[in-house]
Nucleic acid binder design. Structure first.
Length: 427
RNA sequence: GGAAGCGUAUCGAAGUGGUCAUAACGGGCCUGACUCGAAAUCAGGUAGCCCGCAAGGGCUCGUGGGUUCGAAUCCCACCGCUUCCGCCA
């Protein structure tokens, strides 16, 4: 949620920033301003009546105590009650309208984020080089099936298209990656969290998934109640809600969390056919990092998160590209996003394994996460998140980049202590 | 799943229909005094949000409704927590 005060003061700036995302929401901004003015006018009227009501209500017991007749003032009170009720209803209606409109606005991109869509993304740096192979390469689906690492057929049997089974060395590698990531993060002083996977509506609201992107998550309906839960699409949704409605003591900032969870996504309408194997599925494992920071220190945290995610990919020895996303390609809730994209040889394409973003105060406003600053005033915290990392994209990259002519896959050095083997060979 | 109880500031807790909700009382924390310093003691201070240029005003006793001129207080629903019983990884 963007700051209504900022929108009120600089509506043209808000409009221009949203345009960088290739969205034209001028009419929404204008409507917010209209509703805002109406609401404030109405509030002025109603609050004056409430003031009268309050003072009258104090007079009644005094009059009664001194034996006087309070019937006249009580009649006026009755009148006021009706008027106030009516006025309050109007305010509530305007407020709801305004909130709905405000929620439909995306976060404003940072000034240095370029305008435009995906095609305007900028490469920040490359790590390593594209591996060269002196033999015809296999894609990760073929490699994983041959090595008995992934069972796509039975995954689909169990849960439909977009689901797979890790087995044998596949399961071992998956587990090794997760442990490797978690160990690295713990070394860096992040607190390890295992959150619930079924979350309440409010979590999705704060993270920015709801009300706009309700279709992208799996909802859980309780047959005997009307409470809605949903399967988290990323651990960020949980982590960003830990301090909802809290005032975090400033000395505890920055808060650094990591969580491991599977991520559950409907991927409705995705072009699955182009993305074979485990590139896009309904469930994938990810270790997620989240930081809460003071509002003038989130840039430092952002650099830290990007650096950490990069380091993991580097330690795995994978060729990747770091991209700074253009405004239109940043997530709805984010002011800036950098993607780490790993090279998938068979697709000849870089695929995202980590996305690091700074939401600034956008999520904290929705979740009312604050701290008292050095200036003794209340500030909204900043929230940032980065994957560290998503394994379902890492395994294809590993097996493809580390494949050998005989169909075996060399295990990246950092994973060997976790797996206890150097090369995964066909049976 | 059954039964009972509870939800008031930073914490504990009083208030059970009005005229002490910034809110009794106690603890914590901050400032000052005393002290070489500390402890103890004493004095003072310790919400957030919204409207308004300001003066000032409004809102918040878990949440939402209702009764009433007036609700922390009475009624209803919901949410959360605790305890006991049952079931259980």
């Amino acid at each position: 949620m963007i700051d209504i005060k900022y929108l009120r003061e600089k509506p043209e700036e808000v409009k221009a920033k949203i345009k960088k995302r290739e969205m034209d929401l001028d009419s929404v901004v204008d409507e917010i301003l209209t509703v805002d003015a109406q609401k404030r006018e109405q509030m002025g009227k109603v609050e004056a009546m409430k003031a009268e009501q309050n003072s009258a209500s104090k007079q009644i017991p005094q009059i009664k105590k001194s034996g006087g007749d309070a019937s006249e003032i009580m009649a006026r009170m009755k009148e006021l009650v009706a008027l106030i009720k009516e006025g309050d209803a109007k305010i509530a209606e305007l407020d709801e309208k305004q909130t709905t409109l405000l929620l439909s606005l995306p976060n404003l991109p940072d000034d240095d984020v370029v305008a435009g869509g995906k095609e305007q993304n900028q490469e920040v740096r490359l790590f390593g080089t594209k591996p060269e192979f002196a033999f015809p390469i296999k894609n990760h689906v073929e490699l994983c099936e041959n090595l008995g690492m992934i069972d796509y057929q039975r995954g689909a049997k169990l849960a439909g298209a977009g689901s797979w089974l890790y087995r044998g060395w596949g399961a071992r590698m998956e587990w090794a990656l997760l442990n490797f990531f978690i160990d690295e993060h713990i070394k860096d002083g992040f607190e390890f969290i295992l959150p619930p996977h079924m979350l309440g509506y409010q979590c999705g609201y704060v993270a920015g998934q709801f009300p706009k992107f309700t279709d992208e998550v799996y909802r859980i309906e309780n047959p005997t109640g009307n409470d809605m839960r949903f399967m988290l699409p990323t651990a960020e949704t949980a982590l960003v809600n830990i301090h909802r409605d809290e005032i975090i003591p400033i000395e505890e900032l920055p808060k650094k969390y990591i969580a491991y969870t599977p991520c559950y996504r409907r991927e409705a309408g995705s072009y699955r056919s182009e993305e074979r194997g485990m590139i896009r599925g309904h469930q994938f494992n990810k270790v997620e990092m989240v930081q809460y920071t003071e509002d003038d220190k989130s840039d430092i945290a952002f650099e830290e998160l990007v650096g950490k995610a990069e380091r993991l990919v580097q330690e795995l020895g994978l060729h990747y590209r770091l991209s700074k996303l253009a405004a239109g390609d940043c997530s709805f809730s984010m002011a800036r996003t950098y993607d780490i994209e790993v090279w998938i040889p068979s697709m000849e394409i870089y695929k995202e394994v980590s996305s690091a973003s700074n939401a600034r105060s956008y999520q904290a406003r929705r979740g009312n996460v604050r701290y008292r600053g050095e200036d003794k005033k209340m500030h909204f915290a900043h929230t940032l998140n980065a994957s560290g990392l998503a394994t379902s994209r890492v395994i294809p990259a590993i097996v493809e980049q580390y494949q050998n002519e005989d169909g075996s896959v060399t295990v990246p050095e950092v994973l060997r202590p976790y797996m206890g083997i150097d090369v995964i060979k066909p049976e």
